[in-house]
Design a protein around this nucleic acid. Structure first.
Length: 415
DNA sequence: TCTGGGGTCCTAGGACCC
DNA sequence: TCTGGGGTCCTAGGACCC
């Protein structure tokens, strides 16, 4: 038998969630420091970049001058004071804050700063899980000194390193798991550092809205509200039987565990992509017959871009799908599993065309997308003995001469 | 003048096989 | 003739996240 008294202390998990503050907007402020302190929103197309005047000063586009279908990607905290936030349409935002500055999105710049801040973190704490361009989870359990102060010093060091490398602030939550850390990183935004232990859950987590739990979205929170459950504490107090009856076995059990702050998911440092896609919303709604040429051109473009993405990332796809959004916002998807993996624009285009034929295209379209799923690394496919499917890879060089493009045709006019 | 683009995961039914 | 089930793949839709 082991003696519990003599056993070495078991290291508790300490997980950090690091979230960059108003990331895109903050990157833009590095470039345009004269905008600091002003309401600024990022979004829309390419046509509202600042204009440099003869005297070297810049003239920025104002939100009131925007016309189009874009949404806000990020807003500075000054802009958020007007009630504008990510996700809302720029037209609607213009009504709320007409004088706010509007800047176009520049993903290349954001990706650059994303790489920089993640590298700064990894230099201190190598176990990092990517959660998109502006946030990460970090397992700091085994870092020197972390157990002694619950991660306080490590958290400060991470913030300091991120700021030193990028000039940007972030907010960090440090708790025993990802679920709680995600909640805590938001508590003291911007530039916050929030530590929480399991025994503090009732006082600090339970008063929060159930919607704060990552995974409870608008639908689930509405269903909870219908049950009289608004806070995480009320969710924790709800009978498991009720949750199971309302949400099913899996989701019901998860809701109960989450409300009690239980989450054993590890920090995952690498995962293979499951799908790669391209989609575009048109400037105006298009009709399959009347706008056939435009739609065909856009589809070809999307397929070509998708093939480029696959090639660049080194993947081939066995399941090609399309996504359509109609003028009434209804979304339809179709997909097709191929006999062999492909990475060829023509092969993708052919499969997308076959998918498209299975959709009623009477209504006008707002969005068109193409997706490549069931991915395999090209190296695994064409590689050595461990690649039984090698013979079935459709190469880009393969002739596809017989293929023609009968898309968006053979349809009755709608008016 | 509503509502982007790129993802993941889950559910559920039918086909097909054992 | 009826009854039974498990497992996997494919497809479509939906919730949710950044």
């Amino acid at each position: 038998m082991y003696s519990l008294v003599d056993a070495p202390p078991v290291a508790k998990r300490l997980i950090a969630h690091l979230d960059m503050d108003a990331f895109y907007a903050s990157v833009e402020l590095l470039r345009y420091p004269d905008l600091r302190g002003r309401p600024v929103v990022i979004g829309g197309g390419r046509d509202h970049a600042p204009e440099v005047l003869a005297d070297g000063t810049r003239r920025y586009a104002q939100l009131r001058s925007y016309a189009g279908r874009g949404v806000i990607t990020t807003a500075t905290y000054e802009a958020r004071a007007f009630g504008v936030h990510s996700g809302i349409g720029l037209m609607k935002a213009a009504a709320l804050a007409p004088d706010a500055v509007l800047l176009p999105v520049d993903f290349d710049a954001y990706r650059k700063y994303s790489r920089l801040f993640k590298a700064a973190v990894r230099a201190i704490a190598p176990i990092v899980e990517d959660r998109g361009i502006d946030e990460i989870y970090v397992d700091i359990s085994a870092l020197p000194g972390a157990q002694a102060d619950g991660g306080q010093a490590v958290g400060r060091a991470l913030k300091q390193a991120v700021f030193a490398t990028t000039g940007l602030t972030c907010s960090i939550g440090i708790t025993p798991n990802k679920l709680l850390s995600k909640i805590c990183s938001e508590i003291d935004k911007p530039d916050g550092l929030t530590l929480l232990t399991a025994d503090e859950i009732p006082q600090r987590i339970w008063p929060l809205a159930a919607r704060k739990i990552n995974g409870i979205g608008p639908k689930a929170s509405a269903r909870l509200e219908a049950l009289g459950i608004r806070t995480i504490g009320e969710l924790a107090a709800a009978s498991p039987a009720l949750l199971l009856a309302e949400f099913g076995k899996r989701t019901g059990a998860w809701l109960h565990a989450a409300a009690h702050g239980r989450d054993e998911r590890p920090v995952v440092t690498y995962s293979e992509p499951k799908s790669i896609s391209r989609e575009t919303t048109f400037e105006r709604d298009l009709h399959a017959v009347r706008d056939k040429a435009a739609l065909t051109g856009l589809l070809n473009e999307l397929c070509t871009e998708l093939a480029g993405d696959l090639a660049r990332k080194g993947y081939a796809s066995k399941t090609i799908g399309i996504k359509l959004r109609f003028d009434d916002f209804r979304i339809v998807t179709r997909d097709l599993t191929l006999p062999a993996h492909t990475m060829d624009a023509r092969g993708i285009r052919r499969a997308a065309g076959a998918c498209l034929k299975r959709v009623d295209l009477t209504r006008r379209l707002r969005l068109l997308g193409v997706r490549a799923g069931a991915l395999a690394k090209i190296a695994d496919l064409v590689g050595g003995a461990a690649a039984p499917e090698a013979a079935h890879v459709a190469r880009a060089e393969e002739p596809t001469a017989r293929y023609e493009l009968p898309l968006f045709a053979d349809l009755p006019p709608d008016d």
